[in-house]
Design a protein around this nucleic acid. Structure first.
Lengths: 170, 170
DNA sequence: ATAAGAAATTTAACATGTTATCTAATTTGG
DNA sequence: CCAAATTAGATAACATGTTAAATTTCTTAT
């Protein structure tokens, strides 16, 4: 009932007008778009007992016989500490193998274990189906355009500051 | 020296070929693009003692005299628990005010405090400058295209499953 | 009016993001 | 050959993401 409109005048209108429309900022748009897509994947991954990040690791490993930790970090876009924890977990669950590199004892060679491979084979078809539906609903052409723009954006951003934590992947 | 080619045949080549090129998956592209942009903002935000998410909250608050928590969650795309913690922190630092809604004691009305407004006024010009440089380097036209595609993607995704945690914001 | 149900927010618990620091192993310069 | 600088990876510490459960308050049907 009581109209509270007269209070809350702490920040002047001038300040507000300077602000770009919030939900239209680029980082927010990217975040929301990603979430709208990931929501569909996360649900199915959860049923298989893997998180999004764990799946990224397993999937990256499925493209090569074995990888170093640093290589894996670049490929999955995970930071060292996150990856380190994830590798411990995946190792304990028997989904990966960690062998020391005899040439350099600081390095580990990571590879999929048989059961890790089995998991990949089980989950992949489901993931692909989801991806196909997304691609179909959004449109293959638009998807291509979007991918191109995102790559160009990344490239443009790389030029501004320095390299950053995770260097270009491909 | 023993040729290990015969082992490790758990996952046939067929499995590997089924996998889409990893770094080209849509979620990864979106994640990397966002990171490439956020890297520049995070650095400057840090100097002002606010995290990316805290800044999202303050910035959202700067667009209205006061907001409810749920409204703020939608606007900032933060989940309840994260927002709840952030509000406690911002309150303790005196950057926001929390007044109970007399009409419904479950609700809080959140607003910027004077010092919160002051912080906004200090940081905003810096943020805007960064945004301008990004926009200029990437190209205004491409930025517009990208924003459009991202919005369309979100819309398309909303149609697949259910609503999800954070409903459409605008 | 009152108990069951719904709603807004918080708390809890665990995983990841992020930065800084640490350890162990390797490389390099003298 | 040895000490300093580098490098790969792991740990630490704190903030957020994510889901589930708890709390408090409101709403509604009886």
């Amino acid at each position: 009932m009581t109209d509270t409109k007269t209070i809350g005048a702490t920040s002047p209108a001038a300040t507000r007008l300077r602000l770009r429309h919030f939900s239209k900022s680029l980082p927010m748009s990217l975040l929301r778009a990603r979430e709208s897509v990931m929501r569909h994947f996360r649900k199915s991954l959860r049923e298989f007992g893997v998180t999004e990040q764990q799946w990224r690791v397993l999937r990256a490993l499925s493209t090569k016989p074995q990888m170093e930790v640093a290589e894996l970090a670049r490929a999955t876009f995970l930071l060292g500490p996150s990856l380190s924890r994830i590798l411990v977990d995946l190792d304990q669950r028997g989904l990966i193998l960690r062998e020391p590199d005899p040439a350099d004892l600081r390095r580990w060679m990571i590879s999929l274990s048989p059961s890790g491979t089995e998991l990949i084979d089980t989950v992949t078809p489901v993931s692909e189906a989801i991806y196909r539906e997304i691609s179909q609903r959004f449109g293959e052409d638009k998807l291509g355009q979007l991918q191109d723009l995102l790559a160009e954006l990344e490239e443009a951003m790389a030029g501004i500051g320095n390299g950053g934590p995770n260097a270009p992947v491909d």
